[in-house]
Amino acid sequence: MKRDRNDLVEIIILGVLGSLVVLTLAAPQLLQVRRSPPLLSLSILLRDTDSSGWTVARQGMEQAADELGAELRFLTLTVQNDSEEQTAILFREIDGGADALVVVPAGPDDLTLALSQRPDHCPVVTLESSVEGAAGIVAPTDEEVGRRLALALLEDWTGGPVLLLDPLPQTGIGARAEGARAALEERGVPVRQAAALPQDRPEERWVMAFEPLATQQAAERKEAEELGFALYGVGSGAAITAQLERGNISALAAWSDYAAGYLAVRQAVEAAMRADRQDPGPLAFSIVRGEDIYAPENQKLLFPIMSSSGR
C-alpha cells in the first residue's frame, strides 16, 4: 500500500520535472510564436479621393504600426467627403475582418448612425471629428483652434466682414468655424459663412479656412487670381507651408500630422488589443505666421524629417 503510494509520488515528481525540462526547452519556440503575433489589420478610411494630403500623417501611422505590430490599409473615397460611400467601406472593412479602424469622418452623423447599427463593430478611432460610439479621437480642441486663429486675424484686422469657409458644418471642422465665429462676433466683427470661396472675386478682405485642403485651394486661388484677401487657415503640409512662406496665408493653425497619425494608430491598436489606454488628450497646436516659419520649434512642427520609416 505504502509502496504504491511512494511509486506514485515518484512518478509524479519525475513527470513534473520531465515536463518542466520539455517546457523550458520548448519555451523559446513558444515564445517566438507569441512574440510575432499575427499583425493587427488596421484600415484607415480617409474622406479624400487620394491619400496625397495625408503623407505626413501616414508616416506617423506607419511608424506606430511598425512599433506596435499592425498593418495598414489606406482606403479612399471615389467622391470627396461622400459619407455614404464611407459607411459602405466601413461595413465592408468590418466584415472583412479589420481589427480596428481609423476614420476621418466625412459625415460624423452618418458615421454615428452606422456605428450604432453595428453594435459588434470593431473599435473605431476618428481623426478630426469626434463620433459617438468611437473608441477614441485624435484632434486638437476644435473650438480653441478656431478661436486662436480668429485672435490672430483680429491682430491684423482693420475692418470689414470676415468670410468663414466651412464645407463640412457638422464635423470638427465646423466646430473650428464655430469657435472662430464666436470669437469674432464677441468683438463685433461681422461674419459670413460659406461652403467655399465664391467663383467670382469675393468681397471680403478677410477669409478663414478650417481645413487643410480648403486652405490650400484658397491660397492657390489667391495666388493665381491675385485676390486681395488675407487668408487664415489650418494645416501643415509642404504645399500649405509654401503658401504661408510666400505670404498667401497670413497665419496658420498647425499641429503635427505625424503625431496625429501616430496617436490615431496607437489608440486603434490599443483598442483592438483591449490594452490599457493612454489617453493622449487633445493635440497641441500653434499659430504660425509666415515670418516665424523657420523658428526651430516650427520647423519641427511643419516639416517632417524624412526619417526612415523602415526601422
Binding site: I11, L14, V21, V22
Partner: peptide, 10 residues
C-alpha cells in the same frame, strides 16, 4: 515501469 512510463511521457 516507473522509468518506462516517465520516458514515454517525455
Amino acid at each position: 515501469e516507473t522509468a518506462g512510463r516517465t520516458g514515454a511521457l517525455f
